[in-house]
């Protein structure tokens, strides 16, 4: 089989698998342009007869510059804080020999299996006791502290760094912080990009925590602002407006994904040729 044929087949595979995976989402974009009649119909038509752009105008009414600004502060705050606390911790767990690393790893993993809905109220109580209700501190810090995933991801990456690289730097007299910042971090770009996209998306889509901890309008984030569009038995709005809102909300996330892609795909690896 020629390389050319192989590459074309592979390209076709990439496209087909991508479309299959994205189908439900494309269905949602199409839904955001449907009329109230089409969106309620069952079975639902695949495409709208005439696109109803008004859905987007109506959804836009629920978004203010402040809401969008809040969501950025909230999401970027979480991503930034998590990077700040997780990177050194992960590095220490992977590369600095010390006695407690195994215990700490276990401590990180075990609470992941406690359902979030059960911890919500105690977490709320802690945040309330700190006096952080209706503030960005209360919104961001408790969520940034959910850092087990970040630490495990970065640790996994740092572990694969060749030990020689670090030993050499250490012998040259570099401190651990220096090794982390100037040797480990530059090499961890794919992991950083991966983490940033996942963490940003998770924070951007958060709904229950902002709702509970900062119910006042000054701290409203995008999913809370769009919630009234989601429909329901008593709703007086078309469900398609809700989908239009969901489409608007995912635009920044898509931009982040596209922007960070360059970072985690380094080049010609996939062809297997040099």
């Amino acid at each position: 089989m020629s390389t050319r044929l192989y590459l074309s087949l592979r390209y076709a595979l990439v496209v087909v698998c991508g479309l299959v995976l994205a189908f439900p989402l494309l269905f949602m974009v199409s839904g955001s342009l449907k009329s109230a009649r089409e969106i309620s119909a069952f079975p639902q038509p695949l495409l709208p007869e005439t696109p109803v752009w008004q859905n987007f105008v109506d959804a836009w009414d629920y978004l203010t510059p402040q809401v969008i600004g809040n969501t950025f502060v909230f999401s970027l705050g979480i991503v930034g804080l998590q990077l700040l606390i997780s990177l050194p911790a992960a590095f220490a767990l992977a590369k600095i020999p010390f006695r407690w690393s195994a215990v700490i790893l276990a401590t990180l993993v075990v609470p992941m299996f406690v359902p979030a809905n059960l911890t919500l109220i105690p977490l709320f109580v802690v945040t309330f006791q700190l006096g952080w209700l209706n503030s960005f501190a209360g919104l961001i810090i408790p969520m940034a502290a959910q850092c087990a995933f970040a630490i495990l991801l970065f640790r996994q990456f740092f572990v694969t760094l060749p030990p020689g690289l670090i030993d050499a730097a250490r012998i040259d007299g570099a401190g651990w912080l220096r090794v982390l910042v100037s040797i480990a971090l530059p090499l961890a770009r794919p992991a950083l990009a991966t983490f940033c996209s996942i963490s940003f998306l998770t924070a951007w889509n958060m709904y229950i925590w902002p709702q509970v901890v900062a119910p006042n309008p000054e701290h409203r984030v995008i999913n809370v602002a769009l919630a009234p569009l989601a429909g329901g038995e008593n709703s007086v709005l078309s469900p398609a407006i809700g989908l239009a809102g969901a489409v608007l909300a995912m635009i920044p996330v898509l931009i982040v994904f596209i922007a960070l892609q360059k970072w985690y795909i380094k080049g010609v690896v996939g062809t297997g040729l040099e």
């Binding site: 109230a36 969106i39 309620s40 038995e233 007086v236």
Partner: peptide, 12 residues
């Protein structure tokens, strides 16, 4: 309560 939604949806 379902009247408003029905009015929106069953236009034809």
């Amino acid at each position: 309560g379902a009247v408003p939604q029905t009015q929106l949806a069953l236009t034809d």
